[in-house]
Amino acid sequence: MALKGYIRENGQVGIRNKLLILPSVLCSSSTSAQIADALPNVVSIANQAGCAQVGDDLTQTERTLMGFGLNPNVGGVLIVGLGCEGVNPLGLANKVAESKKLVDYLVIQQVGGTTNTIEKGIEEANKMVNAIDEPKRNVDLSDICLGIVIDNSIEESKLIVLSKVIEVLSDSIGVVIIPKRHQSYFSDAKELVYGKTVTEKGIYYTASELGNVALMTGMVASGAQTIIHFTEDGDPAGSSISPVIKCSVNEDIFEIFWEHIDLDISAPLAQNNESLISSQLLSVVTNTINGIDTKSEMLELNDFAIHRILPTF
């Protein structure tokens, strides 16, 4: 089946074409959400960090926010800052602009209060939405970066089969990011710093021992255009810019949570049928790339959390 996506100026491939209203700090998150809510296909994230941070914790937050702006599913970025925060909104804008995508920024303390910022933000976002509109072109699975999230509670026997499934997916998909906890299953997996943009094809592992949302957030920041979440518990976590494909490994959970789970693989998993699972998943991934909404997209389940490594001061 032909795959269609958005080819960005820097050659990256998006499978969605979102305008992201990106708050540099919690203090501008509600304002960003109010701008995003006013327009279709415009999304925001609930950034709870961005100030009073130090050291590696600050750089990790900056890297993650920058990664969201750089994610190829994002066609344009409007950064909204407060004006006195630790993460510099202008610096963030300049970094994202290096990708040649459409970037602008607003600073509440400069624009002058909430009403002006929201008014200007909606006006600006409206222009940007039109400017980023572009036709889809032919793309390839090798252009895709796939994040894999695996519930901590999944047992060893299932993990062995899932790791074979992931191997098969990685044969055709350009980049696969797995949680660090499962690196032992993949001898050729390379370490990926949390939230850092991936530039070369291959299998990577990134920090785990985190909640699913923090892990997903890191993968999206690294450039994942879509995520497969193998779930034992049915955690509904979704992302505002990269479609999350929920894949149940537990029949009972699928029965409860079928509304937000795209696929139940518990039966073929019990039969160790990795080729069936792989082909089912590739078909869902293909549909997702071609624009069919995943269930978490339909339900608008948009979660966000940055993996914090030091407390806020």
Binding site: G55, L58, T59, E62, M66, N88, N94, K95
Partner: peptide, 8 residues
């Protein structure tokens, strides 16, 4: 302590 360096 040591000076915090920004990513950008």
């Amino acid at each position: 302590g040591a000076v915090t360096k920004n990513e950008f």
